[in-house]
């Protein structure tokens, strides 16, 4: 812990975030500019992949959370089952 890593500086992290958001905007803009050769009609919606990726992930997290409510157990749940002889 002698010298700080550049990632430990909040300013740099903020810069990274800005770069990330800029890239997001750029990819969507590029998607509007080039021909995406859509095969299914749904693909030609503006920013389809961006929105679909985001929403699909949101949905998966929510489903996982909901299943977690039912199925989560402390990680000591099975402990002791190796001496069940």
């Amino acid at each position: 812990m002698k010298q700080k890593h550049w990632l430990d500086n909040p300013d740099n992290v903020r810069l990274l975030w800005r770069g990330f958001l800029l890239t997001l905007v750029l990819t969507v803009a590029l998607g509007a500019l080039i021909d995406l050769h859509p095969h299914f009609p749904i693909e030609s919606w503006f920013g389809f992949y961006a929105a679909y990726g985001f929403l699909a992930c949101l949905l998966m997290i929510i489903v996982a959370k909901a299943m977690g409510l039912l199925l989560k157990r402390p990680d000591t749940f099975y402990e002791g089952d190796h001496c069940d002889d």
């Binding site: 990330f20 890239t23 997001l24 990819t27 969507v28 590029l30 998607g31 080039i34 995406l36 693909e43 920013g47 992949y49 961006a50 929105a51 679909y52 990726g53 985001f54 699909a56 992930c57």
Partner: peptide, 11 residues
Amino acid sequence: VTQLQLLLFSG
């Protein structure tokens, strides 16, 4: 481009 959109937005 479509793959980048998909992945970066899931990020």
